[in-house]
């Protein structure tokens, strides 16, 4: 029904960002509106810089198969072709978030590096504030695949670090009393190797 290949999104900072209709299909909040003759949609919660980033992701994954509602096979990373354009591994980012807090997504215990494509890893190699903006945007726009990847990437940054290392990394205070600290240290002594 639609004749225009592109649609326009108007961001929080008043910028107009064009994107392919195909990419827009992956944006949950636009799905219901896509049939309208209108080609301009406001996305008031997203900054243009972040939206551009989201679109970069959507363009990359535009030809991915539709995510299945079950857990997905983990991407195989045979070649580590660093300069690939991503086409080779485009078909593997079908991790779903269907059941973000439900049963059988055992894949979260898979190795991050083995389960996220090199393109996605490079794409998400941004500073934390940007990553957080991206996470919020993916959530607001309803792009489950991106949201899941963002969450896993943030989670990965918090993985494998002890309390003191986490404080240092995220610039956080230790606001426990020495008694509380001692109590937790005793209670959770077993987590130390």
């Amino acid at each position: 029904m639609t004749d225009s290949a592109k649609i326009t999104l108007v961001t929080e900072d008043g910028q107009r960002v064009l994107l392919e209709r195909k990419s827009a299909q992956q944006i949950g909040i636009l799905k219901t509106m896509m049939n309208s003759p209108n080609n301009i949609f406001p996305v008031p919660a997203v900054k243009s810089t972040i939206l551009t980033k989201v679109i970069e992701f959507l363009d990359q994954h535009a030809d991915d198969p539709v995510p299945l509602p079950s857990k997905q096979p983990i991407a195989s990373r045979d070649g580590d072709d660093d300069d690939d354009e991503g086409d080779d591994d485009a078909d593997v980012s079908t991790l779903t978030l269907d059941s973000s807090v439900s049963s059988d997504d055992e894949y979260i215990y898979e190795d991050y590096l083995a389960s996220v494509t090199p393109w996605d890893q490079r794409f998400l190699d941004v500073d934390l504030p940007t990553l957080i903006e991206l996470t919020k945007a993916a959530n607001y726009l309803n792009v489950p695949v991106l949201l899941d990847l963002c969450c896993r990437t943030i989670a990965r940054q918090m993985t494998g670090l002890k309390a003191e290392e986490l404080r240092k990394k995220f610039n956080l205070p230790n606001d426990f009393t020495p008694e509380e600290e001692a109590k937790m240290a005793a209670e959770f002594a077993w987590i130390e190797e």
Binding site: I108, Y109, K162, N174
Partner: peptide
Amino acid sequence: SRMADATGLLWMARVC
């Protein structure tokens, strides 16, 4: 929920 290691959560609980 996406932490790859649940014991990491306990280290997090000890942060602040």
